[in-house]
Amino acid sequence: MRTVIIWMFILLSVSSLMAQKAFSQKELDAVLNPVLVEHAEEMLRFERMEINAGTLSEDDKPQVFAFICTNIGTEKVVVTKITTTCGCTNAQIDSPIINPGEKAMIRLTYNPFGQPGTIYTRAFVYASISEKRPVAALTILGKVTPSAALWKDYRYTMGHLKIRAKTLNMGTVTSTMRKVERIACANAGSAPLKIGAVKGFLPEFLSLRTEPEVLEPAQEGFLIVELDGKKLFEQKGQKSFSILLDGISGRPSDRTIKISMDIK
């Protein structure tokens, strides 16, 4: 297999240039989203221009996606380079010279490690007819979930919420206190999480929220439980409350935390 010249770090180059000069949107688009050669579809016909990789994990090995094209023109096409918009992706072509009627395969290898979140990576195929405009733009879409190693310190899973403890002892509390306790948590999913407590399960002297209020994918934070002693009224002694969390999936028993305290 013959490897065509690959520009692996195009985005880093653009960032470096931007630090030296203020580029217009048109100039940036020329690099990151170049306009195709006119009538490019009359030269190379791809079986598909876009592949959905589905959901990958950072722990997965690099994935290879094949794009097959056919020279449907009357002249040979010589692929001179393939650029990619992310260092996580590299490209190879089995034969850069494609004669009329012949097929060629372009392989894009995507490495999900260090890329949690949405996949949107592109490759631009250039030929000898134009060094400035590509003849094709290939796209890989999908999602990458964070590495399991990232969550090793979180013992419990509630839907996509990772949490270090399911019990919280607030110690001794009185009617003159305002007390705040925290449980470390993280969003192991691919969508934002906004966590609260199901109404009817949270005593009026307790409030529950996360910090930050919305946990973005792969973001760590805290589950905040706050006690307002003025609302304890006549309650005394050892108390325990089961709080059902809202905003995550799972059976009630799988998304419940237990809060205990000694009310004086």
Rank of each mutant, 00 (worst) to 15 (best):
I6W: 14
M8S: 14
I10N: 08
L11A: 11
L11F: 06
L11M: 14
V14I: 15
F23I: 01
S24Y: 09
S24N: 04
K26L: 12
E27F: 14
L32E: 07
V35R: 14
L36E: 11
E38K: 12
E38Q: 10
E41W: 09
E42G: 00
E42H: 11
M43Q: 13
E50P: 13
N52S: 12
A53Q: 02
A66Q: 08
F67N: 13
C69R: 03
T74G: 00
T74D: 15
K81W: 10
C86A: 15
N90T: 15
I93G: 09
I93T: 08
D94W: 01
I97K: 00
G101F: 14
I106A: 04
R107H: 06
L108R: 10
L108C: 02
P112L: 06
G114D: 03
Q115Y: 08
P116I: 02
Y120S: 14
Y120P: 00
Y126S: 14
A127Q: 07
S128R: 15
E131W: 06
T139Y: 09
G142D: 05
P146D: 03
A148D: 14
A149C: 06
L150F: 09
W151T: 01
D153G: 00
Y154C: 12
T167R: 00
L168R: 10
M170S: 02
M177S: 15
M177Y: 00
K179F: 06
K179T: 07
I183A: 02
C185M: 03
A186P: 04
N187W: 00
P192F: 06
P192T: 06
A197G: 07
A197F: 04
A197K: 07
G200K: 06
G200H: 05
P203C: 05
L208M: 08
P212K: 02
E213W: 11
E216S: 11
E216N: 12
Q219I: 04
E220D: 04
D228K: 13
G229R: 05
K230W: 05
K231I: 04
G237I: 11
K239M: 08
L244D: 07
L244P: 01
L244H: 04
G247K: 10
S249E: 15
G250E: 05
S253M: 12
R255L: 03
I257E: 04
K258D: 01
K258G: 01
I259A: 10
M261D: 09
I263F: 03
K264G: 11
